[in-house]
C-alpha cells in the first residue's frame, strides 16, 4: 500500500511575503515525483509543510487521507531530507545519527544503511559538523533511503555530492524504489540529470503550481522548430512561442505545443527541423518572465542566472 499526497487551497505567508499561494496538488502514491522551481519558488516551504515541519497559514494537507500537522501517526511515515542534513546535532558522530534514525524509524534497514555508508565513504566516527559538504549530503540520502518511509522527500539533498556519488545515489534510489515501492518527492536544480527518474513533474513558480504532468506528456509539448525564418514564422503562427533565437536568416523557435503527424509532415516538406526540448529548457522558458524581443543575431534565449 502506498500513500497519496493531497494538497488543497494551501497558503503560506511569512509576514508580507506570500511563499505559497493557493496550491492545489495531488501526488499519487507509489511514484517518483519531481518538484522543480526557481530559487524562492516555494519548493522547500511546500516540502516542509508536507513533513509537518511547518504549519501552513491556511489550507489542508493530507497524506494517506489523514491531516499531516501534529499527527504523529502520519509524520512517522514521512521522511524529509534537506540539503544540509540539518535535523541532527553537529557534535553527534555519524554512527550516533544512524543509531538515532534506527530507533526512530520502524522500517529502518540497517543493512542498506551500512552498505550506503560504505559506498559513499562516509566516516562513521567523525562528528557530523566535521564532514565535508559531499559527505553530509551522502549521509542525508543514506538516512533518507534506509528509513524506507512510505513518503520520502529529498529537498536538494544531493546537490553537494560529486558526480560519481550523485550517479550512485540515482542508482540506489531507483533500485530501492523498485524493490520497495513508495512515494518519493525529489526537488532539484540538476534537472536534466535527475529528470529521467521522474514519473511526474510539478513546476512551482512564485508560490503557485505552474505545471503538474507526467514527464513524457510535458516533454512531448516542448518542440524546437528550426529553419528559414519566414517558414518558421508561418509554421509557429498561433502557437505559444516560449523563446526564440536567430542566426542570420535562420530562426529557432521554442514552442509549447505537441505537433501531430500532419504538422510534422508539413515541417519536413518546408525544410524545418523539429527537435525536442529538454525538461531543463522547458523549465527555463516557462519560468522566465517574457523578455522584450531581442535584436537579430542575438543568441541568449537559453540563459539563466544560477
Amino acid at each position: 500500500m502506498t500513500l497519496d499526497i493531497e494538497i488543497d487551497d494551501l497558503h503560506l505567508r511569512y509576514g508580507e511575503l506570500t511563499a505559497l499561494d493557493d496550491v492545489r496538488l495531488r501526488l499519487d502514491g507509489g511514484k517518483i515525483h519531481g518538484l522543480i522551481g526557481r530559487n524562492g519558488a516555494g519548493k522547500s516551504s511546500l516540502l516542509a509543510i508536507l513533513a509537518a515541519f511547518r504549519k501552513p497559514t491556511s489550507g489542508t494537507v493530507r497524506i494517506g487521507g489523514q491531516p499531516v500537522f501534529e499527527n504523529p501517526e502520519i509524520t512517522h511515515q514521512v521522511c524529509l531530507v534537506r540539503s544540509t542534513g540539518d535535523t541532527v546535532e553537529d557534535d553527534d558522530k555519524v554512527e550516533e545519527a544512524l543509531r538515532f534514525a534506527e530507533r526512530l524509524r520502524p522500517a529502518w534497514d540497517a543493512e542498506l544503511a551500512a552498505r550506503l555508508v560504505d559506498r559513499f565513504h562516509i566516516p562513521l566516527r567523525h562528528a557530523i559538523g566535521k564532514l565535508s559538504l559531499g559527505q553530509r549530503c551522502a549521509l542525508g540520502v543514506t538516512i533518507g533511503l534506509a528509513t524506507r518511509a512510505p513518503v520520502t522527500m529529498f529537498d536538494e539533498s544531493h546537490l553537494g555530492m560529486d558526480a560519481p556519488s550523485r550517479y550512485a545515489f540515482y542508482d540506489e534510489l531507483l533500485a530501492d524504489f523498485m524493490a520497495h515501492p513508495r512515494t518519493f518527492v525529489v526537488s532539484t536544480h540538476l534537472i536534466d540529470e535527475v529528470s529521467p527518474l521522474f514519473e511526474e513533474v510539478t513546476i512551482l513558480d512564485r508560490g503557485r503550481i505552474l505545471v503538474h504532468e507526467p514527464l513524457d506528456t510535458l516533454l512531448a509539448r516542448g518542440t524546437a522548430v528550426t529553419g528559414p525564418a519566414a517558414a518558421v514564422d508561418r509554421f509557429v503562427d498561433g502557437f505559444d512561442v516560449l523563446a526564440e533565437k536567430r542566426l542570420g536568416g535562420t530562426r529557432s523557435a521554442m514552442v509549447y505545443a505537441a505537433f501531430d503527424e500532419g504538422r510534422r509532415r508539413w515541417a519536413a516538406e518546408a525544410g524545418l527541423e523539429l527537435g525536442p526540448l529538454s525538461l531543463q529548457d522547458l523549465f527555463v522558458h516557462l519560468t522566465q518572465p517574457t523578455e522584450p524581443a531581442e535584436p537579430a543575431g542575438s543568441t541568449s534565449a537559453a540563459e539563466e542566472d544560477a
Binding site: 511514484k31 517518483i32 523498485m178 529521467p196 527518474l197 514519473e199 514527464l215
Partner: peptide, 11 residues
C-alpha cells in the same frame, strides 16, 4: 531496463 538506463520504470 529501468536500472540499466537509469530511468523511471514507468518509462
Amino acid at each position: 531496463y529501468a536500472a540499466f538506463y537509469r530511468i523511471n520504470p514507468a518509462t
